[in-house]
Amino acid sequence: MNKTSSEVQATVDAVKLKDLSKSAPELFGVKTGVDGIDKLFYKAEFSKETGKPVVKPLGGIPAYSVINLSGVADTGKSLFAEQFAVTQANEGNSVLYITVETPAEFLYSSLLSRAAAMNIDKSKVEENVYMLDITKDFNIRGNINNFIKTIENAATRFNIKNVVIDSVTGLFESKEIYAREIVRTIYNFLKSKRLTTLMISQKRSGQEHLSAEAAGGYAVSHIVDGTIVFSKQVIMNRFDSSTFKRPIGDVIRLLRVDGCRMCGHDSKTYVFEIEQNGLIKVLYPLGYIAGQQKEDKE
């Protein structure tokens, strides 16, 4: 006779908060290598002398976090992820770079180009970055259980510390109705293995550029630990040209941290640029432009 749900013995028990003290991870930053980003994440500690909170930058994204990079095409998401991978490889930390969109052989030159621009020895990148190419393997790309097993095997074999998934949208592009289930499964696995992860998700062209919504709705941003939203805007008229201090036809790029449940963060919208060498550099808050215009008038 089948048991009802109320008769099935619970498999998870509640625990006292103090019993989690030994397993709770330390809060520290993992460097991204992107100029201006690492200072946007911080923690508050209380001063023993004054009893007041003191803000201390983490110096990177929170360790063991899963951060979503969201934006429309050509906003710098993949470049950001490549800088992160190259930086961590240079630190001696192994990175699993999972490519769902571009065949791995086409990423070799891109990653080494990023390393050259950052003055990083290419041998460290070649040694510490492990490529997992599932662009042509639907048995992995289209089956979440196979996907998780493949990551687990690589993580164990190569002592992986960090993961890049470019992009998670490719895992549910033909079945968005299952986006939440797919992302939740991946997220739970990454957290259980304490893998610091950048997870790229694509936006549809009709979605509001600076919102965290992407393909699959809010499935990614609601589940992961935090989201960095990337946007770009073409200066098309005199008003925009005056507002952004850029000539007509120029492109202004914006990003903001749209929440992070693991630590404090600066939520202002920042102007950033992609330099000729392909490196991303965060410049200043968007409000700085308005402030400068006010000063000019005064």
Rank of each mutant, 00 (worst) to 15 (best):
V86F: 10
A10K: 15
F272C: 04
F147Y: 14
N68H: 14
E45D: 10
R141Y: 10
G71M: 11
V164A: 12
F244V: 04
D133K: 13
I228A: 02
N188R: 15
M236C: 04
P57Q: 06
F239M: 13
E176D: 07
G92A: 04
A212L: 02
G264V: 05
S192L: 05
S47A: 07
V224T: 10
K56P: 00
M262R: 09
L171N: 09
A155P: 03
N237S: 01
S70D: 04
R184H: 07
E275K: 15
R261I: 13
F239H: 02
F189C: 12
G217I: 05
S211M: 07
L198W: 01
E208Y: 02
V12T: 15
Y130T: 03
Q292Y: 00
R204P: 09
L111S: 10
L190M: 11
A85V: 08
G71Y: 10
N159S: 14
S174M: 11
T156H: 10
A89F: 06
R114A: 13
N159Y: 08
L17S: 12
K191I: 03
S123E: 13
G226R: 07
A115Q: 08
F239A: 12
P103Q: 01
A44K: 14
M236I: 10
D74Q: 12
S78T: 15
V100M: 08
I235T: 03
G170F: 11
K31W: 03
K22E: 15
K294C: 00
E173T: 13
A14K: 08
K16H: 14
I160F: 01
K175H: 11
K232R: 14
R184P: 00
N139E: 10
I144T: 12
